[in-house]
Design a binder for these strands. Structure first.
Ligand code: MN
Ligand code: MN
Ligand code: ZN
Ligand code: ZN
Lengths: 134, 134
DNA sequence: TTGACACCAGGAATGGTTCCTATTAATTTG
DNA sequence: CAAATTAATAGGAACCATTCCTGGTGTCAA
């Protein structure tokens, strides 16, 4: 039933995924672009965006979108959560093991057919805490 | 210690807050602009944005930001959560009473000083479910 | 009065992301 | 392999919600 769209295995897509998975950080498209360019100097930023989107569609990577801040990408698709620094945008992993409960996901809420949820913590990262204290 | 900034009680700010609080919906700045213009025809969209920001800073209203979608505002600052329709952007309230647990908020995670968290559900609203089924 | 300044309307600028178009190249078919 | 098909690319323009800028206005206090 679900027609799987043909994906070509381009060098650009391959390198983008490789470099993302090497990182423990959660880079923006622009940051990843800078890294990928070392191996593919002629790649365009649009290609990075398009492939990150495609990889996300296919469930190969995670995409985290924020208002007013650049989206960030995660090569680790294990179930985990994040803390985001409201000062510099840095993101760190929080694995469910680290604390007790995970939120319930009801099938229906207020008449909505619930397809997912998003839980994210925000705060100040160690570096920014030091920096802000002069 | 915390220097409270002087706020002037302008008609624009008053009307924006009044109209927002009358609504059970969670309007965008543009939607609220259209409503407020009926009472203040010469108000500018920039003024609506500025005042919504100010009111949010002062904790008088809630602001919900989404990537790729307009921010929405909430005159109800009681603790509650939201379901957002991924098709039309509509938002409905979910009060903690409606279901069991609320997420824990640790004071520190991964070295971050945690200042808050965000939990939001997304799905398909009743209207869009009907519409999508032809 | 006069100064200080929060605030306004109008409009330009911003910037991350998406879209457009001609071209390239991965994959399939014969 | 050669040819046909068409997904994907580079480059750059467009998008658009939001913010910023500017000149001006209303208000309060000294
Ligand atoms: Mn992660
Ligand atoms: Mn609400
Ligand atoms: Zn930080
Ligand atoms: Zn809907």
């Amino acid at each position: 039933m679900a027609i799987t769209k043909l994906r070509r295995n381009t060098p650009q897509r391959r390198v983008i995924l490789e470099e993302l998975c090497l990182l423990k950080s959660h880079p923006t498209a622009a940051e990843l672009y800078a890294i990928v360019r070392k191996r593919l100097p002629r790649i365009s930023l649009g290609t990075v965006y398009r492939n990150l989107e495609v990889l996300h569609e296919d469930g190969v990577i995670d995409k985290m979108e924020f208002a007013g801040a650049e989206s960030r990408f995660d090569g680790n698709t294990e179930l985990h959560y994040h803390v985001r620094c409201t000062e510099c945008g840095r993101i760190e992993d929080i694995f469910p093991l680290d604390w007790e409960q995970t939120p319930a996901q009801p099938a229906e809420l207020a008449g909505f057919q619930v397809t997912g949820y998003r839980l994210e913590y925000f705060g100040i990262c160690p570096d920014c805490r030091i920096r802000l204290a002069h």
